[in-house]
Amino acid sequence: MKRHVALLLALAAAVPVRAGPVVDPLGSPMWTAHARTLFGDDPVRFDPRVKVDFPIIAENQRAFPVVIDARTIPGVRRMILFADLNPIPVAIDYRPVAAAAYVATRIKLDQRTPVRGAVQIDSGEWLVWGGWVDAAGGGCSTPPVSRVKGDWADHLGEIRGEAWPLPGGDSRLRLSFRHPMDTGLVENIAAYHLEEIDVRGADGRPLAEMAIWASVAEDPALTLMPRIGAGERIGIEARDTNGRDYRAQVEVARQSPLPAPPAP
């Protein structure tokens, strides 16, 4: 009997837990529903190696910076950034095809919410971590601007960026697009946002692909770490929900590798 129980326990440990029953360390009212939608029947586990880093204060609820860094986890093939209580929960669904498991961007916050990173590894399992962000906690001196930047139409299609080599053959790629990223939730303004961004090497080989939603801040800014070295050229292609294409090209700086940025 005892052996039987032990065997059962061993089996239980070996069988990954399904999305539903996993207890959310953040106690979010939306966890179960989001887990079902995002992960379906895939196994899910909470794992602090999925580092989700953000500032101590949500100074600007329209552009709250978040980093997901899962570089210590081998075999990451997909990374999702989402905020449980946002009207549009998912911000980014990123596939670091030939890139380190790292993505940084800025998102909109609607209220106090968990902000999470979920990464899927080669086995199909999802690893999730994150924290609560108090959107009303600060930002008192940033008035909630009722109208976003009005001049976007004059600047649509402008892309800024730069790339620097990192130790070990990756590079650090920074991109920023002028785009209104309208959610469709504001009266009289239809949803209109970037929806797809692809990053390629000069030979066309895919480095990184992502789907993005209107919960990403206006004028989306991204930091990625594609596997490409100094002096090589990176091509960027993007498309928005009106079918408009965006193209950019940047050469990884011919310089010695950057030092690591300050650690959390």
Binding site: E59, N60, T142, G157, R160, G161, E162, S176, D245, A248
Partner: peptide, 22 residues
Amino acid sequence: RSVSHLYPALEARLLPRIDRPR
């Protein structure tokens, strides 16, 4: 807080344009 206030404008000034013709 200052990063939030000042960074986007610095990026717009310091990061070069890289877009190509449509």
